[in-house]
C-alpha cells in the first residue's frame, strides 16, 4: 500500500502528518510526504528564482523545503526513519535542483520499506493529480480546506482514495462511521473501514439512511452484509437505520467523535461535476476526518 501525505505548513499540518503516520503504521504502507509550493506568476517567475538563488547563498531554504525538514524531524522523533537514514540526515540540496522542478529525497523507513519526501510547485490539485497518476498511490491524505472548489476538485479528480483530515484529537475515543447503502462504492469502504477498526481497535457505527419511511430490500441487504463482514472480522459494531436526508443525518451522527469512511459516489462524472455528490457534501459540512474510498 502507498500513501501520499500532502502537508503545507508546520502550523496547520501536524494532525495531517500524525494521522497519516498512524495509517501507514497500521497498514505497513510506504509513505510519500509532499509539499506543494506556490508557483509565482509567469511575470515574476524569473525574478523570484533570482531572489531564491541569492537566498541560497545566505543559506535560506524555500518554504516547502523548510516544511519538509520539519516533517523529517517529526518522523525521526516518532521513530519512522531508520538509523541509517537518520545518520545521513536531511540532504535538502537534493530536494530542489532548480526552483519550480519536482525534487525528491528517499529514506529508509522503520515500519515501512521507504519514506519519500517530495517538493512540487504549482496548482495543488494539478500537482497532486499528477503525482497520484504517475506513482500509483492508494490513499492521499490532506488537511481540510475551507475552499469548496478545492474539496470538489479533490474528490472529483484525484484518482486515489482521499482522507481529509479536519479537527482531530487523539486523546478522544473515536468511532468509525460507516454509511452503508446499495452502491458499488460501499463494499470497498467496508473493507477499508474494517482494516482501520482492527488496527486501532475502534468500534463501528454502520449507518443506513433512507429518505423514505420504508427501507427497501437493497438498503437492508447492504446493511446486513456490512454487519456480516464486521462480525466475521471480530469488529464490534452497532447497526443504525435512520429516516432522513442522508447528508444531514451522516453529519449529525458523526458529530465530532467519528471518522467517516464512505465509498465514492457511483454517479456519472458529469452529474457529479455539476450537482456534486453525497461524499462531497458530507466532506464540506462535517467537522471530522473523512475517508472517501475509491
Amino acid at each position: 500500500m502507498r500513501l501520499l501525505i500532502a502537508i503545507s505548513s508546520k502550523e496547520y499540518s501536524e494532525s495531517t502528518l500524525q494521522i497519516g503516520l498512524r495509517v501507514a503504521k497500521a497498514f505497513n504502507a510506504c509513505i510519500t510526504i509532499t509539499c506543494v509550493g506556490q508557483k509565482p506568476s509567469s511575470f515574476a517567475q524569473n525574478h523570484v528564482r533570482l531572489a531564491q538563488e541569492s537566498m541560497e547563498r545566505w543559506d535560506f531554504d524555500l518554504p516547502p523545503v523548510t516544511v519538509l525538514e520539519w516533517a523529517f524531524d517529526y518522523l525521526v522523533n516518532y521513530g519512522f526513519i531508520s538509523q541509517e537514514s537518520c545518520e545521513i540526515g536531511f540532504k535538502k540540496r537534493l530536494l530542489v535542483k532548480r526552483a519550480g522542478e519536482r525534487g525528491e529525497i528517499n529514506f529508509k523507513g522503520t515500519f515501512c520499506e521507504r519514506v519519500d519526501m517530495i517538493v512540487r510547485f504549482g496548482d495543488i490539485i494539478t500537482e497532486l493529480r499528477d503525482e497520484v497518476q504517475k506513482h500509483d498511490y492508494d490513499v492521499t491524505i490532506i488537511g481540510g480546506s475551507k475552499k469548496r472548489r478545492m474539496a470538489h476538485d479533490l474528490v472529483q479528480f484525484i484518482d486515489s482514495s482521499i482522507l481529509v483530515v479536519k479537527q482531530i484529537d487523539f486523546s478522544k475515543p473515536y468511532r468509525i462511521l460507516l454509511p452503508v447503502d446499495d452502491s458499488k462504492g460501499t463494499l470497498k469502504a467496508i473493507t477499508f473501514g474494517i482494516q482501520i477498526a482492527k488496527a486501532y481497535n475502534l468500534e463501528v457505527d454502520a449507518l443506513t439512511v433512507s429518505k423514505r419511511k420504508r427501507f427497501g430490500s437493497g438498503y437492508k441487504g447492504a446493511s446486513d452484509r456490512a454487519c456480516r463482514y464486521l462480525e466475521n472480522a471480530n469488529v464490534s459494531y452497532k447497526q443504525h437505520f435512520i429516516v432522513g436526508d442522508p447528508v444531514e443525518t451522516i453529519v449529525e451522527m458523526a458529530d465530532e467523535n467519528h471518522i467517516i469512511i464512505m465509498g465514492v459516489s457511483s454517479k456519472n462524472p458529469l452529474k457529479k461535476f455539476f450537482a456534486g455528490s453525497k461524499p462531497l457534501s458530507v466532506m464540506n459540512t462535517s467537522a471530522c476526518p473523512i475517508l472517501i474510498v475509491k
Binding site: 509565482p40 515574476a44 525574478h47 523570484v48 531572489a51 531564491q52 537566498m55 524555500l62 518554504p63 523548510t66
Partner: peptide, 14 residues
C-alpha cells in the same frame, strides 16, 4: 502578492 515582481519575491519567502 502577484501585483509586482517585488511583491512576488517577498511573498516567496513564506
Amino acid at each position: 502578492a502577484v501585483a509586482a515582481p517585488a511583491c512576488a519575491i517577498i511573498y516567496s519567502s513564506g
